[in-house]
Design a protein around this nucleic acid. Structure first.
Lengths: 106, 106
DNA sequence: TTTACATATTGACAATTTCCGAAATGTATG
DNA sequence: CATACATTTCGGAAATTGTCAATATGTAAA
């Protein structure tokens, strides 16, 4: 796993994006139940759809979509599409690597 | 110790600033001997003066001075003035707290 | 105290980022 | 297929950042 420290730092240097990351630590506690409208039951792995995140962030859909993309490109989030919805969840692997990188390389 | 994650992330989202932080992990290996012009011998604690860093970064003095200030305001560097020179060194405490913060809070 | 040098601050301009509304795309349903 | 809805992409205005040259400040030495 390679850490693009600049990309990650840029992604983390915004309050809302930081909040999204924290909120997704506890999806059940921070968001309404997900996947209720899906025809087939799917394991969403704690993923949350864009509109739930958008409602909590209180920013426009396009901005939130953009933020989620930024976090994903930095490797901090994973996304999975089911029907109309895109579910985003944390990429714990990257977070672990990041902590390790800071401890040993930085 | 409180971590201002946004301030720190902004400071880290620039290649040169990231390099400065890494260079300062090994001051003896990366910079010429420091403090040679001081009248009294002082323990510089691995600190490196601005002009040495500027020479290695290959940017203008004002830019480098600015970058060092940014890193210091984020708590990542410490500075100490001796005579005409300002010696900058890493603030390991913040780095440790940062890694810990990412592991537990983020 | 005049000079020289190390660093910091200021002012300017280009490049990038933030954030939105509008438009486009994908997907399910009538 | 036509519609509705979730999300993404696009285009642009405002704010921030990158970077420098010029200027200012602090300090030591002549």
């Amino acid at each position: 796993m390679d850490i693009d420290m600049i990309e990650i730092s840029k992604a983390l240097s915004n309050e809302t994006r930081l909040n999204i990351l924290k909120w997704l630590k506890d999806p059940e506690g921070n968001f309404p139940p997900q996947g209720g409208c899906l025809s087939e039951p799917v394991d969403l792995k704690g993923g949350v759809c864009v509109s739930s995140i958008q409602a909590k962030a209180n920013l426009s859909p396009s901005t939130v979509s953009n933020y989620l993309d930024t976090l994903q490109r930095a490797g901090l989030l994973l996304s999975e599409r089911h029907g109309k919805w895109t579910y985003y969840r944390r990429n714990e692997k990257t977070l672990e690597c990041l902590a390790e990188y800071i401890k040993t390389e930085l």
